[in-house]
Amino acid sequence: MSFRHVDQYAAVVSPVTRTVPTARLLGTVTLAAGSAALPFGAWMPLAVLFLAVLLIARAARVPARQLFIRTTGPFVLVFLASAGLLVLVPGEPLFTLGVLKVSSQGLERFAFVLGRASVALSAAVILVSTTSFPELLHAFRELRLPHVVTASLGVGYRLLYILVDELERLQRAARSRNAGTGSTTRRRLLVGITAAGLSRAFSRGERTHRAMLARGYAGDVPALFSQSWDRRSTLALVMLVLLVGIVLGGAHILS
């Protein structure tokens, strides 16, 4: 297994990749928080933010088709999670599905939640498409995230590929022995595989720890990436924050 396809546009030179990773991360958070903070029914401001995201995707050289494909999976989950709004939000009944009454307010809220989620999902996909994991870790460090979180993410990321591969191998080995054909047996088998995975994760963690100590590790994982803030990044981030602020302010004044 490999997650290397995730950041496939990180090496592409573009106005987005020329900014520092921290600015990219903060920009993504600004867009996601800005769209989430829009009042219900603010369709025009939402459309402006969505347009801004599409323009950023174009600037990052992320093809629209790629953006669409990569947001589809998470979007389906959001769609299923928000479907309940159709019947749970009280209002004038629009139509009925069996005993469930779909209200017009529920339909509008459902559509608006999907719209807000689309902006945030697209922004997140652009971020991870243009930013490698070490760059993200560097951004977390710059944002003063607890050292223990960045350190364990750094080690965890290295172990993750190996561990997922091992879990898949354990599953394949079990299947090849025709183990777990029944539903209950399969559940037991999966529990066993998960516990074995935890045990192996610790073994690998301990080995990694010993290797790190041998190389002089004293509690700090050195950063593999360094890129300092520049004027371009500051300007890009300020412009984005201003845009989101104006859109958000306008939406709240008009609502």
Partner: peptide, 21 residues
């Protein structure tokens, strides 16, 4: 803390990919 928590982080992430019917 880094190696131990790194191992557990990787485990939780990987185990959440295994779905139980």
């Amino acid at each position: 803390e880094a190696p131990i928590l790194g191992a557990v982080t990787a485990f939780v992430f990987a185990s959440q990919m295994l779905n139980f019917p």
